[in-house]
Design a protein around this nucleic acid. Structure first.
Length: 640
DNA sequence: CTAGGGTTAG
C-alpha cells in the first residue's frame, strides 16, 4: 500500500523509477498534455519510445488541438510498422484524434488502409465508431450514415457506442428504422441507447415526444437512470406537453422513481412546464428544492434562467429581478427572460431600458431578444420605440427579421390603431406571411372594430390555418361588436361545417396548495352555489356603478342571443375564479388567476370595478399578458 | 491505453 501511494505521488516526475514511456502515459492521463509531449520529444532516446507512449501522445496532441502533432506521430508509427492494424490502441487513438480535430479525410484514409480480413472485429468496430462520431461531431450526417452502411456491409457488428454517435446525426424520419435495427439486436433498451433515442425523438414535436415516451415505457425499470427521466421529461417539456412533463416529474418522485433524485436538468424542464402552465405551486416547491438540495445553484446559468422565466411568467417580477441580480454571470437568456416578464406586465419602458443595458454590457441581441423587446413595446403601446428598434434590427444588430418579428410588429402597429401601416408591412415582407401574421392583423381589427381589413385578414388566415378556432371566434366577435348579426351566424355556420368547436375558456386559482379550476358556466366546484351568488351580486353592483355603457352592452348581448341559438357570453371562468378567491382570502390580499384565453372586455371592466370595492388586487395572466387590477384600474391601462 | 447519453428564453 505504501508503495502504491508513493508511485502516485511521483507519477510523471523526472526522478520517477517508471520507464519513461509509462510516464508519458501517466502525464496524459493526468491531463498534463504539454509535459507529456515535451517528455516524448526530449526523453531518453534509449530505449526508443515504446508503443505504450504513442497513443498517449496522440491523445495529448488532440487535447491541445495540434493536428500536425498527430500527423507526426502517425508518420513515426508507420515507419515502425505499427500500422495499419498492428497496434489497435494506437490506431484507435489516431482515428479518434483525427476525427475530433476534423481531419476527416485522414481518418477515412486510415480506415481504408485497414485490412478487413486480418483485423479483429472489435478493432474494426472501434475504428468505425471513431470516424462515425467524428463525422457526426462535424455536422456530416450523410458521411456518418455512409460509414454505418459500410460497417454493416463488412459484417462488422455495431454496438451502443455506434448508435450514440449515429442516432443524433440521423434525419428524424429515418430514426425509427435505426431504432428497429437496434431493437433487433437488443440494444434499444440499453440505458445509453434508449436515452439517446429519447433525446433525438424529442426534436420531433409532440409526435416525437410520444415516441420518446414509448422508448421510456419499454425500458426495464432497472435500466432507467436519472438521464432517462430527464430525457423523457424534457421531450414533453420542449414540445408543449407541459401537463405530461409535470406528471412525469410526479412519477419520478414517487416510489416508481426508485430513489432517482432530480438534478438541475430535471428542474429546468419542470420549471419550463410550470411557467408555461402557470403552475405556481409546482414552481415554488421546485425552487424550495433547488435552494435546499442544489448547492451553488446561483452559478448554474441555465437553472437560474429557468427560475427567472418561471417567476417572470407566473407573476412575481420582483423575485425574477432578484434572481437576475444575484447571478454572478448572466447570459442573453437571462436578459431575455426578464425583458419578457416586464413586457408581459406592461412595463415597456423597463423592458426597453433593460435591453439597452444588455447591449451596453456588450451582449449582441439575438432573434429571441428582439421578439421579447417588440412584444414589450407592443403591450405598452410604445409605437415609436418599436418602429425604431425594428429598423435597427437589420442595420445595427445585423439580424434578419423572421416571421415572428413581423408578427410582433403587425401586432404593435395594429394595436396602436395603424391598421393600414400594418397591412403595408405585410405587403413589404420578403417572405409569404403565415397564419400568425394575418392573425395578428385580425386581432388588431377586433380591438379597433375594423370589418374591412378584418375580413381580408380572416380570409387569408383561414386559408393558412383552417382548423384554428380562435380566428373564427375573433371574426365572429368583430361582427358582434359592429352589430352585423347575419355575419356572425355565417361564421358560426362555417365553424359548424368544419366541425370546429370553440376552445373552452378556463381559469384557475391556487389556494392552500390546491388548484381550483373553473370553466365558463361551470357548476362543478364544491362552493359553486356561493360563487355564483357572489358573481351575480357583483355583476349587479357593477351595472349600477357603470350605468349606461353596461346597459348598452347588455342590449347588444340581448340582440345577439335572439339572433343565434347559443349565447357567446355566459359567465366567464375568470369571474368564477375571482369570486372563489374573494370567498377564500382576507382583505388586502392578492388573488392570482391564470387563464388560457384572453380576457374579454366585459370581464375586464367587471374586474376593475370589483377590485375597487373589495379591497383585493387581482393578478390575471391571460393568453398574452398580465393584467393587475387594483383600486379600480388595470395595469394594462385598458390597452391590450 | 480506444468510441459515448440529458438542459433554458418568444
Amino acid at each position: 500500500m505504501a508503495t502504491e501511494s508513493s508511485t502516485v505521488a511521483v507519477a510523471g516526475d523526472a526522478n520517477s523509477t517508471e520507464p519513461w514511456s509509462a510516464r508519458v502515459r501517466t502525464l496524459t492521463r493526468l491531463g498534463r498534455h504539454r509535459e507529456s509531449l515535451a517528455l516524448l520529444r526530449h526523453g531518453d532516446p534509449s530505449p526508443p519510445p515504446h508503443a505504450l507512449a504513442l497513443p498517449a501522445s496522440v491523445i495529448s496532441c488532440a487535447a491541445l488541438s495540434l493536428p500536425s502533432g498527430v500527423a507526426q506521430i502517425h508518420a513515426l508509427a508507420a515507419k515502425r510498422g505499427l500500422l495499419p492494424a498492428a497496434d489497435a490502441y494506437l490506431l484507435s487513438a489516431l482515428l479518434t484524434s483525427y476525427s475530433r480535430l476534423g481531419c476527416l479525410p485522414l481518418a477515412h484514409q486510415l480506415l481504408d488502409e485497414m485490412p478487413l480480413e486480418s483485423t479483429p472485429h472489435t478493432t474494426l468496430r472501434t475504428a468505425f465508431n471513431s470516424v462515425i462520431s467524428g463525422c457526426a461531431l462535424h455536422a456530416l450526417p450523410v458521411a456518418s450514415f455512409a460509414l454505418f452502411r459500410r460497417m454493416r456491409a463488412a459484417a462488422v457488428g455495431f454496438d451502443a457506442v455506434t448508435l450514440l454517435a449515429l442516432v443524433p446525426a440521423t434525419p428524424l424520419s429515418v430514426v425509427p428504422q435505426v431504432h428497429a435495427l437496434a431493437a433487433r439486436v437488443g440494444l434499444a433498451t440499453e440505458t445509453s441507447v434508449a436515452n439517446c433515442l429519447m433525446s433525438t425523438y424529442a426534436r420531433g414535436g409532440a409526435f416525437g415526444a410520444a415516441l420518446a415516451r414509448r422508448v421510456f415505457d419499454e425500458m426495464p425499470l432497472a435500466s432507467r437512470d436519472l438521464v432517462s427521466w430527464n430525457a423523457v421529461l424534457s421531450a414533453h417539456a420542449q414540445n408543449g406537453l407541459a401537463v405530461d412533463a409535470l406528471e412525469l416529474y410526479r412519477r419520478m418522485r414517487s416510489p416508481e422513481g426508485s430513489g432517482v433524485e432530480p438534478d438541475a436538468v430535471t428542474i429546468v424542464g419542470v420549471l419550463s412546464s410550470a411557467a408555461h402552465l402557470g403552475a405556481r405551486g409546482v414552481g415554488f416547491d421546485v425552487e424550495h428544492y433547488v435552494r435546499q438540495r442544489i448547492p451553488g445553484f446561483h452559478t448554474n446559468v441555465q437553472l437560474c434562467n429557468a427560475l427567472i422565466n418561471f417567476h417572470a411568467r407566473c407573476g412575481s417580477l420582483p423575485r425574477a429581478q432578484q434572481l437576475f441580480d444575484e447571478m454572478p454571470r448572466k447570459s442573453i437568456v437571462s436578459w431575455t427572460a426578464l425583458i419578457t416578464g416586464h413586457g408581459m406586465h406592461g412595463n415597456g419602458d423597463v423592458a426597453v431600458s433593460l435591453f439597452e443595458r444588455m447591449v451596453s454590457e456588450g451582449i449582441r441581441p439575438d432573434n429571441v431578444a428582439m421578439v421579447a423587446l417588440f412584444s414589450a413595446c407592443s403591450h405598452a403601446g410604445l409605437y415609436d420605440e418599436g418602429r425604431r428598434y425594428f429598423s435597427a434590427m437589420e442595420s445595427v444588430y445585423k439580424l434578419r427579421p423572421t416571421l415572428e418579428h413581423y408578427t410582433c410588429m403587425v401586432d404593435l402597429l395594429g394595436r396602436a390603431g395603424r391598421l393600414e401601416e400594418a397591412r403595408e408591412l405585410i405587403s413589404s415582407m420578403p417572405m409569404p406571411a403565415d397564419g400568425a401574421v394575418w392573425g395578428a392583423l385580425l386581432g388588431a381589427c377586433k380591438i379597433h372594430k375594423n370589418v374591412d381589413v378584418g375580413e381580408e385578414a380572416f380570409t387569408r388566415v383561414i386559408e393558412l390555418e383552417p382548423k384554428n378556432v380562435g380566428y373564427y371566434v375573433l371574426m365572429s366577435n368583430i361582427y358582434t361588436d359592429t352589430g352585423q348579426l347575419d355575419c356572425v351566424a355565417r361564421v358560426r355556420a362555417m365553424m359548424r361545417e368544419r366541425g370546429l368547436k370553440k376552445e373552452p375558456g378556463c381559469s384557475y386559482v391556487e389556494h392552500k396548495g390546491r388548484v381550483h379550476l373553473f370553466m365558463a358556466d361551470d357548476h362543478s366546484h364544491p362552493q359553486a352555489r356561493r360563487i355564483y351568488e357572489l358573481v351575480i351580486r357583483l355583476e349587479l353592483m357593477v351595472k349600477e356603478k357603470s350605468g349606461m355603457r353596461e346597459s348598452e352592452v347588455a342590449a347588444a348581448k340581448g340582440r345577439m342571443e335572439k339572433a343565434a341559438a347559443q349565447p357567446l357570453v355566459g359567465i366567464h371562468s375568470e369571474k368564477l375564479a375571482v369570486a372563489f378567491g374573494l370567498l377564500n382570502t382576507e382583505a388586502g390580499s392578492e388573488i392570482v388567476v391564470i387563464k388560457n384565453l384572453r380576457v374579454c372586455g366585459d370581464c375586464h371592466s367587471f374586474l376593475k370595478v370589483v377590485s375597487a370595492t373589495t379591497n383585493r388586487a387581482f393578478l390575471v395572466r391571460d393568453a398574452s399578458r398580465f393584467h393587475r387590477f387594483d383600486g379600480g384600474v388595470c395595469s394594462c391601462k385598458d390597452y391590450w
